[in-house]
Design a protein around this nucleic acid. Sequence first.
DNA 1: ACATTGACTAATT
DNA 2: TAATTAGCCAATG
Length: 119
Amino acid sequence: MDDDYLEIVLDLVERIPSGRAMTYGLVAEVVSEELVAAGGPARGGPRQVGHVMARAGGGIPWWRVVNVTGRAPAHLRTSAIAHWLAEGTPRTASGERIALRQAIWFPPQDHPHDAPAAR
DNA sequence: ACATTGACTAATT
DNA sequence: TAATTAGCCAATG
């Protein structure tokens, strides 16, 4: 993937507020929208986002990006949980995963509570 | 060009 | 809730 793609993904991830989270799929969708808005073709998917994260390594709040089940990858699970605890991210009773319904975050594009018809 | 793989997801069971 | 299966998109061999 291009550095372009990488930049957009990382920029988005860094905008996720402390104590909140986004899923890989959601990140992928927002990035695609950005690409289209920039005049390019939509590309990438959840797995591409994952690859970007892997390449970026540290230096970004990777623990705020989780899979759709609210869990972090096996090898990072423990430290991710520590971060969630430190940030007060809503977690499930088991503590191993994030309570997505409460923690999920969407970029501030508009958050109208009742405007489902648009687009 | 084909097969495999991966910080994934959605639908079934 | 957890395990399986089949898609998915792009990179790699």
